[in-house]
């Protein structure tokens, strides 16, 4: 049953590559941000796959379970706890980025990165 983990790893690698591609090559800023959130999700998926155990059980100890059986069969819960934090961090980063985009849209009236985030030192010279 290593197949499950293999499929998950392929999915996460594909997500990271899609995200990196969009972060570098796509011009629209909102799509760029969506792509960046895919990188984050790919990393999360990878870390959850570390804790997975083929044929295991959910790592929650029920009252009627045998402790030694549980210890040898449960999935590894530490990565799950880490991913919980990183999902929330990803959502908050996304919110801050979108807020900045909304402020900048009022100024420029476009979502194009080439216009919005052109080299700022050149912009200053242009204004002078």
């Amino acid at each position: 049953m290593a197949e499950v983990q293999l499929i998950i790893l392929m999915t996460s690698v594909a997500l990271v590559i899609i995200g990196l591609y969009s972060a570098i090559f796509i011009d629209n800023i909102i799509k760029k941000i969506i792509g960046i959130s895919f990188i984050e999700e790919g990393a999360n998926l990878f870390i959850v796959a570390i804790g997975y155990k083929a044929g295991g059980v959910v790592p929650i100890l029920m009252p009627n379970m045998d402790t030694s059986w549980f210890a040898s069969n449960a999935a590894y819960p530490l990565p799950f706890g880490l991913v919980l934090t990183s999902i929330v961090i990803g959502a908050s980063t996304l919110a801050v980025m979108l807020a900045l985009v909304m402020v900048l849209y009022k100024k420029y009236g476009t979502l194009s990165t080439k216009v919005m985030l052109a080299d700022t030192s050149k912009q200053e010279e242009y204004n002078e």
């Binding site: 804790g51 929650i60 999902i87």
Partner: peptide, 15 residues
């Protein structure tokens, strides 16, 4: 499916 129901709940709401 990966045996992480707590993460699944959070991801369902956030993602």
């Amino acid at each position: 499916i990966l045996l992480a129901p707590d993460v699944a709940l959070t991801q369902a709401i956030v993602g």
